[in-house]
Amino acid sequence: SKGEELFTGVVPILVELDGDVNGHKFSVSGEGEGDATYGKLTLKFICTTGKLPVPWPTLVTTLSYGVQCFSRYPDHMKQHDFFKSAMPEGYVQERTIFFKDDGNYKTRAEVKFEGDTLVNRIELKGIDFKEDGNILGHKLEYNYNSHNVYIMADKQKNGIKVNFKIRHNIEDGSVQLADHYQQNTPIGDGPVLLPDNHYLSTQSALSKDPNEKRDHMVLLEFVTAAGITHGMDELYK
């Protein structure tokens, strides 16, 4: 796709999030870079409003799984890469995230190029959380598991539907599940690639910047598309 050509090198990323969870309002600002050749993201996020009212790991899918245009699609799968094909005009990404036995996040993001920078601007609203639950009670460990993110075409809306389940580790050794339902639709009216069913395999590492006084998260992530085999004719070339 034409959009794919915008991702040949390292691309700067800007992320802006405004959130409200159970009436606790907050903002997060992030910057870093993405390299789609390797499916690599390096980002640093800062809570610009003081202390973040929710655990950082609960925002990873909104912040970095928010820029799935940096996923590495192998050559034989490039015609299934909706995310890059929607660029530079970008796409709207909407999600509902259900935390098992707790509340939910609803998010709406616009992901697009502004100049040479890929920008992810998000509004997040969280409701029905227990004040002493795993999320508002800050009981999650500061780490992140690997996940597969399942993608299918949504021809009606000229976009994709995505769903997956995140496993958050809790300090007591148990797990907090979070079910994600995602819809992506193009902002522009140019042609986009509608994929066959496949998935993104994601690995994320969270860390801290020892010199950063503000509440923050440093993230390194690798994302690769998989799940579609080479056609038989490919094998015999």
Rank of each mutant, 00 (worst) to 15 (best):
D189G: 11
H230R: 12
Y105N: 01
E131K: 09
T49S: 11
E171G: 12
I170S: 15
Y65C: 00
V175G: 09
N120I: 02
Y236N: 15
Q68R: 01
N104C: 15
N148T: 10
N158I: 05
P195A: 06
S201G: 06
G137W: 05
D18A: 07
T48A: 04
V192E: 07
P57A: 08
E212V: 01
K44M: 03
T96S: 10
F7Y: 05
S71N: 02
I166L: 09
L235Q: 13
E110Q: 15
Y150H: 08
V10E: 04
D75N: 09
K165N: 12
L219P: 00
K157N: 13
E234G: 11
H138L: 08
D196G: 10
V67A: 10
P57S: 11
D189V: 07
I166V: 12
N145S: 13
H147Q: 07
I228M: 14
K208Q: 06
K84R: 02
H138Y: 07
K51N: 09
D132V: 06
Y199H: 07
Q203R: 11
L235M: 05
N22I: 02
D102G: 07
E94G: 03
G34C: 01
N169G: 03
V11L: 07
D179N: 12
D132A: 04
L194R: 07
D215G: 01
D35N: 08
G173C: 04
K112N: 10
N148Y: 07
P186L: 05
H76R: 09
V60M: 01
T224N: 08
H198P: 00
I127V: 12
G133R: 04
A226V: 07
L14P: 00
D101Y: 05
G66C: 00
V92L: 06
D132N: 03
D116V: 07
D35E: 09
L43P: 00
D179A: 05
D35A: 03
L177H: 12
L206R: 00
D18E: 15
K161M: 12
N143H: 03
N197T: 05
A205T: 15
D75V: 12
H216L: 00
D102N: 02
P191H: 11
I160F: 02
N120Y: 02
E4D: 09
P88A: 03
K139V: 04
E141A: 10
T185S: 11
A225S: 05
V21L: 04
K208R: 08
F82L: 02
T62A: 06
F7V: 03
G137A: 08
E16D: 09
V92I: 12
P210T: 11
V218A: 03
K125Q: 14
F7C: 10
H147R: 04
Y38D: 09
H230Q: 13
D233H: 10
P210S: 07
G9R: 10
H198R: 01
L6P: 07
E31V: 13
Y150S: 05
P57H: 03
G32S: 00
L220V: 15
V111A: 04
G39S: 02
H147P: 01
H180L: 03
G50D: 02
T202A: 06
F82Y: 08
V223G: 02
N120H: 02
T96I: 14
Q203H: 15
A205D: 06
G34D: 00
L14R: 13
F113S: 01
S207G: 08
H168P: 00
V15A: 02
N120K: 03
V60A: 03
Q203L: 14
E33V: 15
V28E: 00
K125R: 10
K100T: 10
